[in-house]
Design a protein around this nucleic acid. Structure first.
Lengths: 343, 343
DNA sequence: AGCAGCGGTGGAATCGATTCCACCATCGGT
DNA sequence: ACCGATGGTGGAATCGATTCCACCGCTGCT
């Protein structure tokens, strides 16, 4: 590799052009390859660029192109959650792959609770061409802000506020929860509790609603609810709460709104000598690896993260190409039931 | 909040100035507050800016200022590892806090194994003012590349190659490992094994070296080594390997190079009916939360992540201010032993 | 009254790229 | 031999901010 002569500062296109004996215009054309350049000029420019270790200045380039070549992934979530929940790991992995294919740089913005303002400033500064937003809370006005901003964006999971103003890729949380309940009922269970997610999150809310709706439709009791926060520990606590409530010992089925909570619940059941699935059947949600490794392996609903992400990136790229015009679209995927041994 | 009239495009300083009835120069001064502006002009500009929902264009600004106001955190690590290892969570949390205090935007770059080139292109494009690099592998030439680039950077944990060319904030892994061994010896243990980290990572290598050196100094056997990859599962496997080797049943002390591996080892010991610390004493490494919650609570070495990060950010800001000149500094923190109940 | 000094101000240069537009060869066709 | 395409090229405008520098009108001093 012929290497770089830096004399203190990064080299500019002007220097490359001078060294190659052509104008800036020709140098730019030679490097970007859009327009025709003579073979001789082409070679001279490429050599000069290599010799000087030239890389275009991003600021200058995006100033004139109105494009930065990078997109933000925004996680409006405390960072403990981001790093403890396998959902995010899987999602980021998929986003990274998807963006790589399209030659875009991923910029991850961790939006701390108190820090939204700086983040918005960053986005309004047009440091990125667009944004993908995943999972957020009830009182979050991010959708409106982004929509006001005119910054192309796609939400993974519908926001509480302003969902109609932005493109959304979602999964049918309520339908999936109903599916889980149906499986439990079909397995002969009649007293079905749920360990629900946080009330202020879409996924938590909708899965609870689906559970309730399906039980009501079947004429069964839909009052046995305990809330967790999707973590294993909260699953254990919630399960204990359910079992200790009036008539808790009647419970013969549990729908947990995440696999981690299901795992926590199974630990609690195990500790009390309650057998799964003999005494209590249990269905989780997500299927991101944990479910296969529980004892026994967990029946769950596969969260179609990869598909959602692929679609989200497709929509975002489309929106960027259109300059943000075009009606907000909405795509919904349906989670698939994965039968294992807990039901 | 008076809101924003967007007529398709983001508003510019020129528009603000016109609306306020002043020149661009005065408008800029009023908004940045560096130089004196009359109270009247000041108010007019601020009002106009609010009315138009003005935010400076980042590209234009950093083009002239030679400064972007954001710094990259580079994790040259597969993203499964990034999201499964609590080390990264804690580190990012600390970095985010530290940067927030200094009004810098954090940009997280996940450097996939095959993706370094795009990342380097991004860095050479000067989209960020500096970079913090954490944890990386043996064959990684990132330090050299960054040094060639002239981009201010700080490494957390010394890189294998080119460490002398970049500022480094490190912890004394070898010294800490030696400390662990000493505690085990002082507790009367004589057959001390280690579950080491990956050979191709600094932390793995140095902790192993410290363990060996201290045992050699004490005239004890330093041949009982099994390697893991810092995860819980690998700890279980490595522990089984140690116990099943020749004379494995003599082992009465284990130093694990991470708490997660220590946890995995304890599970294996438990499964075999070997008591901790009665039969085998064990010391972990990291103390990022897991260690307090093991059964019994784990004696370990506290990885001084918060301090390292704070110092790294300090050094980086300094380097940015100096324009990257100044000799690369090196700061080393000493992990502290946290006594709990496994030794 | 005259002049230095200072708070404010606007015009113009600057950062480093892309791209429009005008221009000049050269070539092929009649 | 002339005329219109072409294919390449460079000068200059452009993107949107910051900042240098020249300048203006005051005040306050001698």
């Amino acid at each position: 590799m012929t290497q770089v002569v830096v004399n203190g500062h990064a080299s500019t296109l002007d220097e490359v052009a001078r060294l190659a004996g052509v104008s800036k215009a020709t140098a730019s054309r030679a490097l970007n390859g859009r327009s025709k350049v003579s073979a001789k000029a082409q070679a001279a420019v490429v050599d000069a660029a290599r010799e000087l270790g030239y890389t275009p200045n991003g600021a200058a380039r995006s100033l004139v192109m109105q494009r930065t070549g990078s997109v933000a992934v925004i996680l409006p979530e405390s960072d403990e959650r981001v790093f403890s929940d396998p959902f995010f790991a899987r999602m980021l992995h998929a986003v990274a792959r998807s963006l790589r294919e399209r030659d875009l740089q991923l910029v991850l913005l961790l939006a701390q609770p108190g820090d939204e303002d700086r983040m918005l400033l960053y986005l309004r500064g047009r440091y990125v061409d667009g944004a993908i937003v995943a999972s957020h809370h009830r009182d979050d006005r991010l959708a409106e802000h982004l929509s006001d901003l005119g910054l192309p964006c796609v939400f993974i999971g519908a926001p509480w506020i302003g969902a109609e103003r932005v493109p959304v890729v979602d999964s049918d949380n309520a339908g999936a929860a109903a599916q889980a309940v149906r499986v439990l009922i079909d397995g002969g269970r009649r007293t079905i509790a749920t360990i629900a997610g946080p009330r202020d999150m879409r996924a938590g809310h909708d899965r609870l609603a689906g559970w309730r709706q399906e039980l009501d439709a079947a004429g069964l009791d839909s009052s046995r609810v305990a809330h967790g926060d999707f973590t294993e520990h909260s699953g254990t606590t919630a399960c204990a709460e359910l079992l200790d409530a009036d008539g808790g010992s009647d419970i013969d089925g549990i729908f947990a709104a995440s696999d981690l909570m299901a795992l926590g619940a199974m630990r609690e059941l195990g500790a009390r000598g309650i057998r799964v699935p003999d005494d209590v059947a249990i269905v989780g949600y997500d299927d991101l690896g944990v479910a296969e490794r529980t004892q026994p392996p967990l029946t769950t609903l596969r969260n179609p993260i990869d598909q959602m992400v692929t679609e989200a990136v497709r929509l975002l790229v489309e929106a960027i190409a259109q300059g943000g015009r075009g009606a907000p679209r909405r795509v919904v995927f349906v989670p698939e039931l994965v039968r294992r041994d807990t039901v």
